[in-house]
Design a protein around this nucleic acid. Structure first.
Length: 280
DNA sequence: CGCCAGGCTTCTA
DNA sequence: TAGAAGCATGGC
């Protein structure tokens, strides 16, 4: 595993000896929208209806105010700590471009966010920039999410399903409003069962999600990767498209497929942030 | 001001 | 059936 021990400390739960883990990279890379970096370097965010502050000092993570039961139930999984990233690394290192991408941000990980939150957030993400996506998600939560200690939970599909386009106007999400409502209705009425979709073959799962108005291949792939735990799902945006053209004119190697979505996360960060990455 | 944003739907040839 | 235009809104 990617840590030595997990202990309850006076100020919360601590993970000691964590590997392949850079909180800054994980939370600022655009895979999630509800974490803010505080001026002291700690991160404050909301997931699974809990508002928490998390910090990393070297190879120690501290989940302030959490107890072990909460950590086991929520954060262990959320930060993908049950995955052995040594294994991921070994697979990705069989490929040259993936190895370079990994080495650029070796502490990157893919979060396991709540299924509905991930689907809804990435519907809002389309044709939008990360700064504004964060604002949309925040207004959606403040307007329709349950008030919790420290903020607002992500609104349930059931709550959103009962709303109209006009109800969503304070969110200012433009043409995406009807997309969010269509998704909420299909999820709330049981037509789409996200947990069942997660188990389907990738192409079938994607097709199911694309029944939602406003959900195409990219958003479906994001929902699968970030919300439904599908490490084999690869969101292809303009950046990944460039990377595919530059590095994989004949497609990605087969052995990468099971973790191609994780590889995508390293690759995405690499080609966007490393000047000249695409020329190699 | 113009261009663009981790796309998708609709229109057009 | 592929390719381009249109879409709401705001960050830069």
């Amino acid at each position: 595993m990617d840590y030595i021990e997990i202990v309850e400390a006076p100020n919360g739960v601590q993970v000691h000896g964590v590997k392949h883990f850079c909180l800054d990279d994980i939370l600022s890379c655009g895979q999630c929208f509800r974490w803010d970096k505080l001026c002291d370097g700690k991160w404050s965010g909301i997931a699974y209806g809990l508002s928490r502050t998390v910090c990393q000092e070297g190879d120690t993570l501290t989940f302030e105010g959490a107890d072990m039961a909460e950590f086991d139930r929520v954060w262990y999984n959320y930060f993908d700590l049950n995955r052995d990233y040594d294994e991921v690394m070994q697979i990705l290192y069989t490929d040259d471009a993936m190895r370079r991408a990994w080495e650029f941000t070796p502490g990157m990980r893919v979060l396991r966010q709540e299924p509905w939150e991930a689907l809804c957030s990435f519907i809002l993400s389309q044709n939008n920039n990360i700064k504004r996506i964060r604002g949309l998600v925040q207004r959606l939560c403040e307007s329709f999410g349950e008030e919790i200690e420290g903020g607002f939970a992500f609104p349930t599909a059931e709550r959103l399903a009962a709303l109209s386009d006009e109800d969503l106007s304070p969110v200012r999400c433009g043409f995406r409003a009807s997309y969010v409502l269509d998704a909420a209705r299909r999820v709330a009425n049981g037509e789409l069962n996200l947990l069942e979709i997660a188990k389907l073959p990738l192409a079938d799962a994607s097709a199911e999600l694309q029944k939602i108005r406003g959900v195409g291949p990219k958003v479906a792939a994001c929902a699968l990767l970030y919300g439904l735990g599908r490490a084999d799902s690869v969101p292809v945006d303009v950046w990944i498209n460039r990377a595919l053209a530059a590095f994989y004119p004949n497609g990605m190697p087969d052995q990468i497929a099971p973790v191609a979505g994780l590889g995508q996360q390293y690759l995405f960060h690499y080609v966007r942030n490393q000047a000249g990455a695409l020329e190699l």
